[in-house]
Amino acid sequence: MHYTFHQLKVFLKVADCQSITKASEELHLTQPAVSIQLKKLQDQFEIPLTEVVGRQLYVTDFGEEIARRSRRILEEAEGIKYTIDQYKGLLTGKIRISVVSTGKYVIPYFLKPFMDLHPGVDISIDVSNKNKVVDGLIKNESDFSLVSVLPEAVKIDKVELMENRLYLVGHSEFLNRVKKPKDLGKVTLLYREQGSATRKAMEQYIDENKIVVGKSMELVSNEAIKQAINAGIGLSIVPLIGLRTALKREEIRIYPLKGLPIITNWNLAYLKDKELTPAHQGLIKFMEANKQEIVNKHFDWALNPLDD
């Protein structure tokens, strides 16, 4: 059997995408090039790796097993390079981090000094909604997840990076209409999508204050919430991260209602039983040692917004 690492990489991408076309796009190869590599690998097995039903490509059970073993082979091969670097005294490796949408305003500030210190570590970031982020962590598709609410169904270790404070934010035109929690029933409330930790916190506040919601609108990202606030559509309870510029404009303001802010924590979470590489361990130690300095430098305004 004479398969190559390149053939295994191509097959894995086809298996992940369930499509030669999509795999070729992600690999930056032509479709014929992907098909040729897939055929060369298939020629070494008597059992099919894939099958086409209608116009859809599917990976067979045998193909799924080969894909799992191929992933381990490639990881071990990549590990040889990192082992050599470690013997040279260099910290190298790959770190995959999944981040909830609001976290994209947080994680770069914590990663930059680590990356400057360890240029041999490759870091990839995937931004998605909370459910996908947690699912990716459980399936080991990511090494770490940046979340404000920890999953309850799995055993997790974490580094608490900083507080995540949620305030009521809206256009200044609501100034004389919203002075106490129950006044929120008279305006349009802007919600994140179902499953969002921000939405859960907002709904809990509304329930605890027995607010009867009138009009509401659901949006799928904090950026969409920000634009709706800018347009004067309504108000929302949101993290201030990503809103600093908007808040400096006179028409956008924080409404200091009773019971606010809601305070959670940004956590860099990872599976308790995960086998940590030297790069993973290095990131954890760096975060623990430097998080307060990073928070003081970049996020003091978000923790004390009414003094900004």
Rank of each mutant, 00 (worst) to 15 (best):
K248G: 12
T92P: 04
R69V: 11
A279I: 09
E288K: 13
V100C: 06
S142P: 08
L276Q: 07
I47P: 00
F144K: 02
E25A: 13
L175C: 00
Q18I: 03
Y82L: 05
A269L: 05
R177N: 11
G63K: 03
H298K: 09
F144C: 00
Q42Y: 03
E51M: 14
S236G: 10
G185W: 04
I66P: 02
I66Q: 01
L49H: 05
L303N: 09
Y191L: 11
F110Q: 05
H2W: 10
V295F: 03
K258E: 15
S148V: 08
S24H: 06
V100N: 02
K104F: 06
D61T: 14
S236D: 06
G120A: 12
K226R: 15
D143S: 09
S142I: 09
V59F: 09
Q194L: 14
D126Y: 13
Q281M: 11
D135A: 13
K22T: 12
D61W: 12
A289V: 00
Y205V: 04
L41E: 06
L168D: 04
D135T: 12
L161N: 02
Q86C: 08
Y105V: 00
R69G: 10
F286M: 02
V53G: 05
K210F: 12
S196K: 02
P305M: 01
N164A: 00
P261L: 01
I138L: 10
Q292K: 14
L189F: 08
L90C: 10
R165M: 13
E141Q: 14
T245W: 11
V295A: 03
L271G: 07
T83R: 15
K88R: 15
F11A: 06
T277E: 04
N140Q: 14
P181T: 04
A269I: 03
L240W: 07
V238H: 04
I225A: 03
M115V: 08
D61R: 14
A197Y: 07
V169I: 07
H6Q: 14
E251G: 01
L303Q: 11
I252K: 04
Q194Y: 13
P119R: 10
I254N: 05
V159I: 08
S124H: 06
R96D: 11
Q194W: 11
E288A: 07
R249A: 09
F286D: 05
T92Y: 05
I66F: 01
T264M: 03
L166M: 15
V238S: 03
D135I: 00
S172W: 09
G259T: 02
H118S: 04
F299L: 05
L306N: 02
L247P: 00
Q37S: 14
L166A: 09
N222Y: 08
M1I: 07
I156D: 02
E218A: 12
E288Y: 06
F144S: 04
I73F: 11
I95S: 01
A77F: 10
K81I: 14
Q281K: 15
I225W: 01
I47W: 10
Q227N: 12
K248T: 08
Q44I: 13
R177E: 13
E78N: 15
L38I: 13
D307K: 11
K81L: 14
L247A: 03
L276M: 11
V187E: 04
S128F: 05
D143P: 07
Y191G: 01
